[in-house]
Design a protein around this nucleic acid. Sequence first.
DNA 1: AAAAAAG
Length: 484
Amino acid sequence: MTKFTDLGLSPEVLKAIAETGYDTPTAIQEQAIPVALTGLDVLGIAQTGTGKTAAFTLPMIERLAAGRSRARMPRAIVLAPTRELADQVSEAFEKYAKYHKLNWALLIGGVSMADQVAKLDKGVDVLIATPGRLLDLFERSKVMLNGVQIMVVDEADRMLDMGFIPDIERIFKLTPPSRQTLFFSATMAPEITRITQAFLKNPVRIEVSRPATTNDNIKQFVYRVPSGNALNTAKAKRIALRAIISTLDIKNGIVFCNRKTDVDIVAKSLSVHGFNAAPIHGDLDQTLRMKTLDSFRKGDLTLLVASDVAARGLDIPDVGHVFNFDVPHHADDYVHRIGRTGRAGRSGEAYLLLSSADEKNYDKVLKLTKKEPEALAIDVDFSALAEDTGRKSPRPDRKPRRGDRDKSVKTAQKTEPESEIKSEPAVNENTVIENKLETPKPSRKRNRADRPSETQEKSTDYEELAEGFGWHVPAFLLRSVDLK
DNA sequence: AAAAAAG
């Protein structure tokens, strides 16, 4: 069996590797490292979790070991699609370059530019960056790319999904054509192929077997949530989620939601109900994102509620459970999401909450995975759903609108973050009761007379307010205009 | 249809 010591790496790097506890390279490492050490271009086709980061970090360190950096002239750049991934690469550098005098800078958005610029001025060997911030700094003349000898593109297919390809192309063009390119992608979409043909020189193509679309170590379950209107479906899902989690012995788990707002609500709801949960998504402050991820890795946080920012690439070892609050828009994202569990031969469980709105995406998932998750047979008490029709407080998931002058709203929200924890008696004929969720809700027409009896609380019943204006429509908007 | 990334 091949060991790291067989790959042509220097004693310094081998020592650093040994200290991390690894001695056997993964398939992609075994194949890519010797090629990259010779200076050839590499086209690596590999999923996340295959050890790609070390596959490009180690040879990069070796090849940079000889030279020295100059101010604002990095000798290598690594591009990653998300800030978390870039951060992870940076951590890998910290480990593996321990016995080398190499400097690197992490250039990502959402954090102060000043520190990054200061580092660039001192001179760094390696830039680890998300494309936006790198180009931003380039446009401010804080960094030059004409000294780049090695360029790494990580998770190119994800960059494509995120619309980064023009940025990547631009960065390619800013670096000298003589550079070595190490390019990694999980799939070879036509656009990806085009880029590699344009910017890689006779690359050595290394493909490691795709981990079976859905790993056999992962037990998949599906729970069908009775569907009503959107609000109640979401709430029913939260109730079901808690019920499922309560039946399990969870060391750590990730709850995935499609929407950032749902991430927030679900995390809050879980916390309110006594679960150790925290949200992570792209709208949250970057330092908070890192802190949250860190405490999840350390085991201080049990449940990470995440958008697809965490679906791929993030190095979170051995997650016991994955919960899909909804079915992702792309079927392969489902595979990535549940692939956070059952890694390295361990067993894992993936739970999916399915509502009628998810059916279409679910079909796509089944087509891809060719594996029907087992229907989960648990009794969920949905009676809390019925307590909500005479809503007295604003929807917690709603963004603030212009009509939000009333201070009482804010305080009410603070003390009662989840209206569902209140237990008010069901009040009127609109009440939705257990197993009758398909009962049509009253139409949402903005007709004051139709509204239930809490009309007097007009300023706090935001549910039916017209966006931005409340009930009052300024006269000028109603005036008809003759354009002739 | 949504998330991610430059503010």
